[in-house]
Amino acid sequence: MKCKLTFLVFTVLTISILACDRQVNQQGKRLYITYCASCHMENGEGLRQIVPALTDKDYLHRHREEIPCMIREGISGPMVIHGKEYDRQMPGLPELNNVAIHNIVNFVFQSWGNDIIKMNLDEVNRHLEECASERDMK
């Protein structure tokens, strides 16, 4: 009897954790569609040499730590994505809080075959703090 109950509790917990995880992704997707997809497109392909694609795994790996700040503060200057140079300005999204940025980052990391290890919220908080203090120093 006790065993059965433990099993039931375990199953319920597992399902709710999985459901919760999926919900985070749904949240990330919703935010991505609202804030990013108008330029980067719903499938992350971007627009020719105007808006870079979000499907360059190497770029995402190499710049992993900068991505939360790029979303918050925007980015300008040349960058190479899929071997092509882009040099336009991306406006930041200062209205998004850390949790929202966390959700977007992980949605991008896990979509379109990117398959990049997710970032946890502590990591996102730390990177956002770092770039805020760098900006204050300037």
Partner: peptide
């Protein structure tokens, strides 16, 4: 050219 809202989508359809 600096439009952050609907323009890239419209341009994608124009393309």
């Amino acid at each position: 050219t600096t439009c952050p809202s609907i323009c890239p989508k419209v341009k994608q359809q124009m393309l």
